[in-house]
Simulated assay, not measured.
Amino acid sequence: MATGAVTSVFLLFALYIVSGFGMAGIGMGVMHDAIHGSYSKNKRVNTILGYSFNLIGANATVWRIQHNILHHTYTNIDNADDDLNAPFFLRFSPHAKHYWLHQFQHIYIWFFYGISTISWITTKDFVRLKRYKNMGYLNKKHEYIKAFTSMTAWKLLYFSYALLLPMLMISLPWWLILLAFISMHFITGLLVSIVFQMAHIMPENEFPLPNKEGMMKVDWYGHQFATTCNFSLNNKLLFWFIGGLNYQIEHHVLPDVCHVHYKKLAKIVSQTAHEFGFPYNVKRTLFQAIKDHIIMLRLLGKKIVEKQSIVELTTNFN
């Protein structure tokens, strides 16, 4: 696109949309493993490939804290798992404050899923970086300034080649190129948000809270089983495209293992779960997983808190 060879509006949007699928594939199939340190046995290779996230407008430093530390350590714990933190008009936890408009979130949430990566590349990464500094995650000397400067430089590079250069080179109105760019990110945001949120915002998943002493009632492994869900395990194309993240349980109990091993590990992990009395939640198809995710969003919109109520209402919705 940046060569100026594109003169068709249809081709412009088609190429940007294909790039949207490509960015989602990079994020889930390459970056995700690399930042977990599981893409390669070589630490330098993982670091380099982790920067692929920066090349598509986001930030590896922010993701490492938000995902590796906060999400994987405190999965589905309100006010601790950053994946549950959302604007007031979205409710991902039964313990979050309820507003009347949440009853419609299962309808309008898809728009906000779609614009999620636009939020990342513009403002959210900067907001999170500052918040993580205040939380003590960037407390080494000049660490925050270096991270902020690096993030700004990477984002300027991304906007230069993904948006500014096409505007200068392509003989089409700038606003069409901007719309194509937004459509690319809408595809990426929708795909990434669905995959990651669908693994945890499900009727069967638990949203446990610590006791007064700050302790959880089960250990970390039991917690991961209780808060995570697999889906569409026999879909080979999906497994390839989303970097094995349909095997979310295997990923959460073994986050430092490359996703190419999840299929072989699944039988062992499921047997271990049953042996110790842990749940092993699986949705047979992608359609069933999306349907149940919608059900859970509707339930959260109705201010459901008790697990028994969630199970009863899920039966009613089905």
Rank of each mutant, 00 (worst) to 15 (best):
G301V: 07
K307Y: 04
S309N: 13
I290P: 00
M296Y: 09
K303R: 11
K283I: 00
I290M: 12
D292A: 06
I295E: 01
N281F: 05
A289E: 02
R284Q: 15
N281K: 00
I304W: 03
I294Y: 07
K303M: 00
M296P: 00
R298D: 04
H293R: 06
K302I: 06
I294M: 10
K291A: 12
S309W: 00
K302A: 12
Q288R: 15
T285V: 10
Q288Y: 04
R298S: 04
E306Y: 04
I294K: 10
K303E: 05
N281R: 05
E306H: 10
R284Y: 13
K291I: 11
K302V: 01
K291E: 10
I294E: 08
K302N: 10
F287Q: 12
K307R: 14
H293I: 05
Q288L: 05
E275C: 03
K307P: 04
Y280Q: 08
F287W: 13
S309T: 12
M296W: 02
N281W: 07
T285W: 11
L300E: 06
L300H: 00
K303N: 14
V282T: 13
K291Y: 15
K291M: 12
Q288M: 04
F287I: 13
K302H: 14
S309C: 06
F287H: 13
K283C: 02
M296V: 08
K283T: 05
Q308T: 12
I295P: 03
R298C: 06
F287R: 14
I294T: 14
A289Q: 02
P279E: 08
G277H: 10
F287D: 07
L299Q: 15
K283W: 01
L300W: 00
G301N: 11
I304K: 09
N281S: 05
R298M: 14
T285G: 12
I295H: 03
I290E: 02
K291R: 15
E306K: 13
I290G: 00
A289C: 12
N281D: 12
V305E: 11
K283F: 00
E306D: 12
I290R: 03
T285I: 05
F278E: 01
I295G: 01
I290F: 07
R298A: 06
H293F: 12
P279A: 08
E275V: 02
L286K: 15
Y280T: 08
L286W: 11
T285Y: 13
A289F: 09
V282C: 07
K303A: 09
S309D: 15
R284T: 11
R298G: 05
I290W: 01
V282G: 02
D292Y: 11
K307G: 01
S309P: 05
R284A: 14
E275R: 15
I304H: 04
K283A: 00
H293A: 02
N281T: 02
G301H: 03
G301C: 13
P279Y: 02
F287S: 08
K303Q: 08
K302G: 07
F278V: 09
V305L: 08
P279W: 03
F276W: 09
R298K: 15
H293W: 04
H293G: 00
